[in-house]
Design a protein around this nucleic acid. Structure first.
Lengths: 253, 253
DNA sequence: CGCTCGATTGAATACGATCAATTACTGTGG
DNA sequence: CCACAGTAATTGATCGTATTCAATCGAGCG
């Protein structure tokens, strides 16, 4: 199917039984029947281009997605254009749950790289709740996990200095990416611009640049190929006074 | 039962069938059988004093609470003492869900006033998911609502100026309080100190004071009896460039 | 080659933090 | 009833971090 608006839908290339993510140690094992249901729940796959808007504030999407591959960010805009990035999405993350449950989306999501998404129909969610309490529990768990990340981000923006914030953010994203196996032999390259970092940390672009530069000069990270790579995650966490993810295995819908 | 640690447990004075909150227009109607289950789910009531810690970061509480009356706030501490207040809890809000789902609490909760809490046992949660998919859905909905509030708070701290932030926070809390009928004939008095506001907005106490003073001088709020009252919510929202809650009826567990 | 986008840098300013008191209010004990 | 202690609010002065303004630089692209 040809792409319009930077997106193209296809039925399925990755049946849930052969999900490339599920075998990762980050994810919990699933019961056979749960996996079977998720497989019927999945309607198809959606490929989106870098820069495309996956979901937009104010819309009532009929769909819910799981990221199969690629990166995105979730953000809100004020009427005068100020932007706040709320969190990042990467493989294994659910996108659009808030909208599915509550109706209207109150934030937007944009792809940071080409992405492949599993598409689910929001209208089948009640069926999931009726017939698969374990999966229902998992979805609540996932919502709670997002809340936990937001708590930590709020602490960061509210109480950390600019340098600590930048260190925290990069360490945080990098830890999450590692957990889903995004590091090959080379370190993960986080595909964001300094403008994204600025809009996440609540700083100006100029000051963000000067702050990032300090991290580079201290050899904690490098900036290349339009993105960021962590060199010394340990010292980044220390600088940020951050305890780390401390996450155990999580469900994958 | 006598109180220790500022808390005292009693069986129940408010059976769910006579819940003082449920009839409020802010809450959805419940099926008879759902109400019956919630009633058995409720173990008793807990009264806590102002200033008492309801749940503490790092603990594994066996309980989950719904606020029947009173105010609390949810916060995180950094090892060096910096505090970030994440959100406020008021009647109808669920407390401790994150901990119930994920094990360890990663934030603390402290009472801002004397409170009365409905006590639920975390270990009965799976039963709720098995037998009451509607309630399970409601709990996810509640988690999503909290996430939505955090999104908005993050936007505020990240992108609003000090004056806008203060205006937003007070308008936000006051709107929520109104929705659960906390206003009699007089406006709601929000029982917080300026230190709480400072720790919510990510500002220093001194600067918070000067900012609040501007709101008072502009006659948008008054400060009295150790708390804050809104005089002109409309202009507060305008000043904050905030769209308002826009919430419809929500579930009450 | 000229264009655009993202990164970078210097300079001037402003917003908010910090330091240091002072004031107002409440509850307590003499 | 008053002195006193403790908490919360308030104010002025100074300092510093982050914003804004204004360029420049470098890489990728048509």
């Amino acid at each position: 199917m040809p792409g319009q608006n930077g997106r193209s839908f296809s039925s399925r290339q990755y049946p849930c039984e052969k999900c490339p993510l599920r075998p990762l140690p980050a994810f919990r094992e699933f019961e056979k029947q749960e996996l079977a249901f998720v497989s019927t729940f999945k309607k198809g796959e959606l490929a989106v281009d870098k820069g495309a808007t996956v979901l937009v504030e104010g819309s009532h999407s009929a769909h819910l997605y799981t990221v199969l591959s690629g990166w995105a960010f979730r953000y809100k805009l004020m009427s005068d254009g100020r932007r706040q990035i709320l969190n990042y999405s990467m493989p294994g993350d659910l996108i659009g749950l808030q909208g599915s449950l509550m109706g209207e989306m109150q934030h937007s999501i944009e792809a940071l790289s080409p992405m492949l998404l599993c598409v689910f129909e929001r209208e089948h969610l009640p069926e999931l709740y009726r017939n698969h309490p374990g999966l229902a529990y998992d979805i609540t768990w996932i919502a709670s996990r997002e809340e936990r990340m937001l708590d930590e981000n709020l602490l960061s923006i509210g109480r950390r200095t600019a340098l600590e914030r930048a260190a925290y953010l990069i360490a945080f994203i990098s830890s999450r990416a590692r957990a889903v196996g995004l590091n090959g032999k080379t370190p993960v390259r986080i595909p964001i611009t300094q403008q994204h970092i600025a809009d996440t940390l609540g700083l100006s672009l100029v000051h963000t640049n000067k702050t990032i530069r300090k991290l580079i000069d201290r050899k904690l990270i490098v900036w290349r190929d339009g993105g960021c790579e962590v060199i010394d995650g340990e010292r980044l966490r220390e600088l940020a006074r951050w305890e780390g993810l401390g996450e155990d295995r999580r469900p994958l819908i």
